[in-house]
């Protein structure tokens, strides 16, 4: 092994070299989450079968990230577009990638219905507790008391409810053949395993797969590296419990 190969940043094979470095801010969770996804795609050897869909919001910057066929769709509509692809081409591995606004606000009806129909696609929601795209507004996942552009005096659960628990909701409305988990950018090894199981669940034709990934937005949180990690690891996990909620593979004793 030469020194040069050791120093080369480790990039999943399915990432597109020509579009690197990617445009996510330093410390942004998207890069890490998509690296875990890329590793899972590599390890399963499915790069040529993947159709990747991304939403509006910072997730759209992944539109040319992979050497996979990709569609950047409308805000909240990535889930139905990927459902449409899958229904027309069941041999494709369809991944819908979005933020918490796309998943739990504007696209929530699609998430609920795709999950209820047990669509054989993988939906990934990057949860960074606010809207990064339009300047840091409140999201369904914003934590109580957190100040955002549209909750300048802090989120008040009395008037705006509590943070949306996406995987818990999906787990409640899917059959046992669905895979549902919440991972975090703070544990990429675990997140990669979750993506692998979720994709395998789709490959096996079992049913709906859903992974929420806790993510960071230091730019809109205005936090330095230490504060960012503290927030992801300590604050967010108080509301958003990391772990698998449904894992059909386990039941089959695999």
């Amino acid at each position: 092994m030469t020194v040069a190969t050791v120093l080369e940043p480790k990039m999943p094979k399915c990432w597109r070299q020509e579009t690197k470095p990617h445009k996510f801010c330093p410390g942004c969770g998207h890069g890490d989450i998509l690296k875990a996804l890329g590793t899972a795609i590599d390890e399963l050897g499915i790069q040529d079968r993947v159709v990747f869909g991304c939403d509006i919001g910072c997730s759209l910057l992944s539109w040319d990230l992979f050497n996979c066929d990709s569609i950047q769709t409308h805000h909240g509509r990535t889930t139905p577009v990927m459902t449409g692809v899958k229904r027309a081409r069941p041999d494709r591995i369809c991944i819908a990638y979005m933020g918490d606004g796309g998943g739990y606000a504007i696209g929530s009806q699609h998430l609920v219905n795709a999950a209820s129909r047990n669509e054989k696609i993988l939906v990934i929601v990057a949860n960074n507790v606010q809207y990064g795209m339009t300047g840091g507004q409140m999201a369904p996942t914003t934590l109580p008391g957190m100040k955002t552009e549209t909750s300048p005096y802090g989120r008040d659960p009395e008037s705006t409810g509590n943070p949306t628990l996406g995987p818990e909701m999906v787990a409640a409305i899917t059959p046992d053949s669905a895979y549902v988990a919440r991972g975090t950018m703070a544990n990429l090894r675990q997140l990669t395993q979750m993506f692998k199981k979720a994709l395998q669940n789709q490959i096996d034709g079992n049913g709906f797969s859903f992974v929420e990934a806790l993510s960071a937005c230091p730019t809109n949180w205005r936090t330095n590296a230490a504060k960012t990690w503290e927030f992801v690891e300590k604050e967010m996990t108080k509301y958003f419990k990391v772990g698998e909620l449904k894992a059909p593979a386990k039941k089959e004793g695999q």
Binding site: A105, T134, G135
Partner: peptide
């Protein structure tokens, strides 16, 4: 309202 550029600051100023 719902966030969308370029109208966001109407909401931002209103919420303040």
């Amino acid at each position: 309202g719902y966030p969308i550029t370029p109208q966001n600051e109407i909401m931002h100023y209103w919420t303040r």
